[in-house]
Design a protein around this nucleic acid. Sequence first.
DNA 1: GTCTATATTTCGATAGAC
DNA 2: GTCTATCGAAATATAGAC
Lengths: 182, 182
Amino acid sequence: MAAIELFAEQGYHATKTRDIAARIGMSTGAMYAHFRSKEELLFEISLTGHERGFAALAGPTEAGATPSDELAAMVRAFTTYHATFHTIAKIVHYELYGLTEEHLARVLEVRHRTSAWIEDAIRRGVAAKVFSVPGVSAVARALLSLCVDVARWYREDLGETPAQIGELNAELALRMVGAERA
Amino acid sequence: MAAIELFAEQGYHATKTRDIAARIGMSTGAMYAHFRSKEELLFEISLTGHERGFAALAGPTEAGATPSDELAAMVRAFTTYHATFHTIAKIVHYELYGLTEEHLARVLEVRHRTSAWIEDAIRRGVAAKVFSVPGVSAVARALLSLCVDVARWYREDLGETPAQIGELNAELALRMVGAERA
DNA sequence: GTCTATATTTCGATAGAC
DNA sequence: GTCTATCGAAATATAGAC
């Protein structure tokens, strides 16, 4: 979708319906056959992006994995997602104030689910005495920062693949939680 | 400044000159005695914020400090800055696309100075063999993420002081660079 | 479904009185 | 310097022909 690129490049409010129309080679009038308003378009992008981000984070969990492997896999996948879909992720994290109150509530639910998921992973490692952290939720927040902020600075022409950034962040995450190493 | 709060709360483009006027209890006409345009207002906030951020990062360097103490002090101060002035920092990091080309170039120079500063600190630790990192600039980027992203989620009613977040991030930074501990 | 044309609103910025 | 009033441009969204 052209709107995704534009919202991410310039921000939601800076993007005009004419810009979107021009990029896809349509008139503004024709676009309104596909969605009711600009905010609805933002909400659809935002909610889908939130759900896919959570799916990326929650996907790699395997039964029987060690807390370290589990956390590394989560950070690796969540980071890779934020690099690969950095345009959508920018909208997800920086365009919340463009949503209506009802739509905002919908995406906040997903955000809460996301942070709870990573907190639980840390908590399991602490319980198993393989992690040592200054505070579970504070470190969870820091790990989310590490993953999420990738969307702010990542560009395809950086010479680094999303997978490489993911691998780096997985390693850093294990260091941050003080994981005992094999 | 009222504009700072509004730009940070809703974004630059979402903030109307009438909103700013209303918050400070002035008319829009009266405001234009104080600045030439909305973009000029954004630029002033952005440049000042950038410079103060760099000053916070570069301030704590002391002669004779160990690489670990030095890096910890930098991350502590830079994080504390981003929590304390999270409204300004939001503008600094998320409202770059609202600037004119000339003004953008000015702030990009400060940003480059900032990342170079933290890279150098890591490089000194690696040279002294007290840090062990997967890559100097990649880890520098990650450290910046950790500090900068604080501005995205910090709120005063969180029950945590900026200094506490700063202390946490300083500890996490030392873990990330694999600093040898006393 | 897409076009051209336009209705309607709202924006940033200015004019002129005080 | 601040006010009221307003200009001119630009925005979202709609109307009606094809």
